[in-house]
Amino acid sequence: KTEWPELVGKSVEEAKKVILQDKPEAQIIVLPVGTIVTMEYRIDRVRLFVDKLDNIAQVPRVG
């Protein structure tokens, strides 16, 4: 699995749990929505963009 659209609106902790069940090797990085990030693709990275309430604001994707 490479993306988790069902996690939008969920808490960071809930999202981490689901992603690590699907992809145990994932390196999860939590960032505020709108953060500028590098464009290199990494198969072991999932970025979680969160709103001010620490809920997932964008679809988490591998990369």
Rank of each mutant, 00 (worst) to 15 (best):
L48R: 00
Q21I: 09
V12I: 08
Q21A: 13
P60D: 00
V62D: 04
V12S: 08
L31T: 11
Y41Q: 14
R42C: 13
G63Q: 14
P5R: 03
W4F: 04
I28A: 03
L7A: 03
T2M: 14
I56H: 03
A26H: 04
K10Q: 09
E13M: 10
S11M: 04
A57C: 09
K52Y: 12
E25Y: 07
V18N: 05
L7Y: 00
P24M: 02
N55I: 13
V46N: 01
G9C: 04
A57Q: 07
V59T: 13
V30K: 06
E40L: 05
K16C: 05
R61A: 12
E25M: 09
D54M: 10
P24T: 05
I36H: 15
D44M: 05
I19T: 02
E6Q: 06
D44I: 00
I28G: 01
L31W: 05
L48T: 03
L7K: 00
R42S: 15
D51F: 01
P60G: 01
V59E: 06
V46D: 01
D22W: 05
L48A: 02
R61T: 12
T2D: 05
P5E: 04
R47F: 13
Y41S: 15
I19Y: 01
P60Q: 01
K16D: 00
W4G: 02
F49S: 04
Q58V: 12
R45S: 15
A57F: 03
Q27D: 14
D54R: 10
V8Y: 06
L53W: 14
S11Q: 08
R47C: 14
Q58P: 00
S11A: 08
A26R: 04
D54G: 14
L7E: 00
I19K: 02
T35R: 10
Q27S: 11
P32L: 05
I19V: 07
V50P: 02
D54F: 09
K17G: 07
S11L: 02
V59H: 00
D22A: 08
G34E: 11
V50W: 00
N55D: 03
K1G: 05
K1Y: 09
V37S: 15
V62H: 06
P24D: 03
V18R: 12
